[in-house]
Amino acid sequence: MSKIIVFVEQCNGTANRASTEALGAAASLGAEVIAVSFGEGAANLTLAAARTIALEGTQYSPDALAGDIAGIAKAEGANAVFCASTGTGRDLAPRVAALLDSPCFSDCTAVAADGDAIAFTRPTLAGKLIANVKSTGTAVATLRRNCFEAPEAGSAEVTIQPASADFKALLTEIAAKVGGKLDVSEAPIIVSGGRGMKEPENFKLIEDLAAAFGNAAVGASRAVVDAGWRPHSEQVGQTGKTVAPQLYFAIGISGAIQHVAGMKTSKVIVAINKDPDAAIFKLADYGIVGDALEILPALTEAVKGAVSGA
């Protein structure tokens, strides 16, 4: 049976959703799953895995942590290492791969057993191509959010191991994001605006619609980010974030190929645009032709009613 190491990101003893999904992906392959986690609270994790190894340390260093994960993978004779495709997971996995002298497959959307190996499906060229690949060494991969079933919490026994203190780069501070706003890469609903919003001030209407849902993030097209209307952290597309929410609103966005690449795997896409011939309508499940500035306030009111169950 194959053995897979899954690095689980956690905060105060609670695993993040993307990491739990990675545990589910590993379990779906019928492998023995060994969870590895780091930091305060890791010893309190109750995971769906055969075992959990909690790395005890107070200082975070990506190079030291990658060394610990690779060391465990070697000691366990694991044939794969999975991380969630998060800012942390995507940073760590290639380091682990190099330490295991294997390639790294980032942001995979599916896994499947392929003989003794694991076949990974991953989008390339910002989703314009889908590649199916496997490693002839250790299979090191990061797994995209919302692509794998997360198991219920389990009862894996936790063993504690000291984390390496051999640092090269050391985390000195984390400044919380302002307002605790949902990030486009995490939100189940995204409301994105483009040039059709006409003025940066009009993004208030986008923010209002997002707020009406309660669990939506604000997104933006490259055009308005480049114009300085919105921060890069909100940019969806080839040079921004690739997202796949349950519901995506493209408002005043024409549907340039580089934007579409970042959001076309969304479950449901709604487009609102003045131009009935806009490319975005070819992609959208539902389209409304009209001036976003007129439609948005009424839509926001209607959503408020719908969400509150009225």
């Binding site: 294997s102 191509l129 889908i130 959208a284």
Partner: peptide, 18 residues
């Protein structure tokens, strides 16, 4: 050490409606 099994175009989205 990467073996490419296949490369494909993503599935087209079903047509939506106005």
């Amino acid at each position: 050490m990467t073996e490419v099994i296949s490369v494909e175009l993503p599935p087209a989205r079903p047509e939506g409606r106005m």
